[in-house]
Design a protein around this nucleic acid. Sequence first.
DNA 1: CGGACAACCTGGTTGC
DNA 2: TGCAACCAGGTTGTCC
Length: 277
Amino acid sequence: MPELPEVETVRRDLACALSGQTLERVRVRRSDIVKGCGRQKLARELTGRTVGAIGRLGKNLIVNLSDGAVLLVHLGMSGRFYVAEAGETLEKHTHLIAELSNGRRLIFRDPRRLGHLELCADGRIEDAQMLRNVGIDAMSDEFTAQRFAEMLAGRTAPIKAALMDQRRVAGIGNIYACEALHRAGIAPVAPCGELSADEVGRLHRAIRRVLAEAIAAEGTTIADYVTGAGVPGRFQERLRVYGREGERCRKRGCGGIIERIVQSNRSTFYCPVCQRG
DNA sequence: CGGACAACCTGGTTGC
DNA sequence: TGCAACCAGGTTGTCC
């Protein structure tokens, strides 16, 4: 479900609702969503810690805790990590409950269980399993057009697959890969190594712009993603190709009809008229 | 090595 | 109404 803009929205909301709170009583109900240790150990390690700054790398949340510990959180497809009002009943698929010093509760809920939690007791996130395959964050200053060109050079994979490969640029998923390619006017099936310098530059700018606009709109809600405040994002109203199979291309004067194809088992939406080559 | 694909999960929707 | 098939915002291991 959540890509960089949705995770960034969750991060910002948690920075308000969670930072400064102490985790007074922690329950972890399943071990299969916990990386690196079991559920009891995670609960024990978290209990009594105070939450500091909250960061993000790609689609991962980085929750800094007292005494140098760090909790990593990945929401997978259906995960939510949020502070619930006191007295709110626990929903099905709630895997972590932490009572906070202000009486509210921190909840991790993930029906599909494709998300993960991992504690780095020593704060060495570079050793974390969850970040092993995570490269440069798509919104960081390190992600330059130059670096992007180096990542793509000589590769035969379709550009859409490369955009979603977290080991290189981290944070782009299926929606924003489709949207960035459309804005740049590049076919999703184009082999990485065949893009011109101009196309790479256009795609780099399109990625930064679409992610920035989506963050400003607090993300895209297709089915069940909501912000930390529990409201849907607004970027779904501004999608140009994703989920628009059979509808008309929104680019001025284009007139193409959006098509859906399957690339490495994922749906790709694109305009065959303005995304040629 | 890179790239394609199945597998991991649940739940909602579609179609017979 | 029932049930099977298919789809979903992600990642990882395996195979070629």
